[in-house]
């Protein structure tokens, strides 16, 4: 009898190959930030320099998009955390008519392609004559960030034994005390993880944003313009590194916050 305790060499190679395929391309972004060639994507780079970081720092057109992206991500995350937690609390504590429909409604903004969410908002703004602004960007982002927070929160609610809240009430705590002393400490890390992921998602979102931003530029939109009409290509790489790092760490933190549970963050984007 052969047991399949050990993977075959072919499978191991294919699995590791698959992982490398997912990761190696990113490294090139870092390499090209140091190339001396700024007109083509020549490989290998003819020479290496660190001057592009200084150039990027001094480019005035980068800062406003960066600020806008940070502001949009912060506001959207805050809104999504409130709305996502509320709906998770409602969904976790009771069964009621229309529950299935609501869960579908929460998931829809990420289940349907971004272009639909974007185009829908665009249509609504057109019909209602709403001018583009930071608020219109936030409306789109908050909508698809709710599900991220919801997913994290609802999983933790499910794991948190309902008896713990009953025990709190039994010992004399009113609803607000139970929330403050029992629910929040147990939910905190899951909410933080959800917030981190929502922030990462919002910070680098481009598809919906192009429909809702009007003349404003978020950092991803700035990058998109540079990709279509490149100038000083390595500067784009420097910005790409900034975007990558700004999203990388929240994701990593989210992973560590929820590690060990059955609901490890990032199971579904």
């Amino acid at each position: 009898m052969h047991s399949e305790a050990r993977p075959s060499k072919g499978l191991t190679a294919a699995a590791i190959g698959g992982l490398l395929f997912l990761h190696l391309p990113i490294l090139l972004i870092f390499l090209y930030a140091f190339t001396t060639e700024d007109r083509t994507y020549q490989f290998p780079p003819p020479g290496l320099t660190t001057k592009w970081f200084a150039v990027a720092w001094n480019r005035a057109d980068i800062w406003p998009p960066l600020y806008l992206s940070l502001r949009v991500a912060a506001i959207s995350t805050a809104m999504a955390m409130v709305l996502g937690t509320l709906v998770a609390a409602a969904m976790a504590r009771s069964r009621f008519f229309g529950r299935e429909q609501i869960s579908l409604l929460i998931i829809l903004p990420i289940a349907l392609p971004g272009v639909i969410t974007g185009m829908s908002l665009r249509s609504a703004f057109a019909i209602m004559d709403i001018p583009f602004s930071t608020l219109t960007i936030v409306m789109g982002h908050a909508t698809f960030c709710i599900v991220i927070v919801y997913n994290n929160a609802v999983a933790r609610f499910r794991r948190l034994s309902g008896a713990v809240l009953e025990a709190s009430a039994d010992l004399g705590a009113n609803g607000f005390q139970s929330f403050r002393y029992v629910l929040l400490p147990n939910l905190g890390s899951a909410l933080l993880a959800g917030g981190m992921l929502a922030f990462a998602l919002s910070f680098d979102e481009v598809i919906v944003t192009t429909f809702t931003a009007g003349q404003q530029s978020t950092l991803p939109i700035w990058m998109l313009n540079e990709l279509v009409r490149p100038r000083q290509r390595p500067v784009t790489n420097v910005v790409a590194i900034v975007v990558f790092v700004t999203t990388f760490f929240p994701i990593l933190i989210a992973y560590y916050l929820t590690r060990g549970g059955s609901e490890t963050a990032g199971g579904g984007k």
Binding site: S161, A163, V164, E166, A167, S168, V182, P185, N186
Partner: peptide, 9 residues
Amino acid sequence: FQDYALFPH
């Protein structure tokens, strides 16, 4: 409580 329901944190 049956499963004790101690506060884990």
